[in-house]
Nucleic acid binder design. Structure first.
Lengths: 109, 109
DNA sequence: TACTAGTACATAGTAACGCTGAATAGCCAG
DNA sequence: CTGGCTATTCAGCGTTACTATGTACTAGTA
């Protein structure tokens, strides 16, 4: 199932991370840990960092460097207005897809 | 939303097509039309054909050439046993993802 | 000092997938 | 014979997540 999930995550992982950031600002390491807690046990750190850089460059988040007690300074990401708009759009798209797939799954039986 | 949907379809479109074939065998042109009927209005024909070749090469479908009344012969694809197993796996993976995302969406409010 | 482990971020290279755009080919109506 | 519908194929592209590795800081410990 790993490979199927990998492909499914394309396009959704971004929304997942944005949804996490919608609740409260967070930094990469924290987000990765949060994903693991939510059941996404196999998501590599590198994947998350690359994604964060992407959404930062798109202007969906604001970034602030915060010193850490242990280790390098944290880059704390906060969803901004543009990011919120984008996230709403994500939910609309997701709902559209999930609904159609649910229909298919129903009709199968 | 188009671009978001494109990315989301990665990994799911394959399952969608397999689910369609689970109901009854079909050929490419027919499947594309069926997708449009189901609300996937923007899926290009080329995309579907490429996907069909992929699942054929993976041995998930059996293929039969059937002459058409109008136009070139049809390649009719039928889900085989292996394809059915793969489809079940797809549903499990999808349910896993959809559930976790639903949690996120709930928690957001 | 040297080591280990945990925290925290970054990146080059790869594979997979869906999209774009075009080509090919058969059939039929005007 | 031209346009439109049926039907398939393919080369090239952009985006995304994964792999694997590297850097850097702190704290504990032998």
């Amino acid at each position: 199932m790993r490979k199927q999930l990998t492909e499914m995550l394309k396009g959704t992982l971004e929304g997942i991370v944005l949804a996490i950031l919608a609740k409260q600002p967070a930094y990469g390491y924290e987000i990765t840990a949060g994903l693991r807690d939510r059941g996404f046990t196999d998501i590599a750190e590198g994947t998350v960092y690359a994604l964060l850089i992407r959404i930062e460059q798109r202007g969906l988040v604001d970034v602030e460097k915060v010193p850490s007690e242990k280790g390098p300074p944290r880059k704390v990401f906060a969803l901004n207005a543009e990011g919120r708009t984008y996230l709403e759009e994500f939910w609309r798209t997701w709902d559209f897809l999930a609904e159609r797939i649910a229909d298919l799954h129903e009709g199968e039986k």
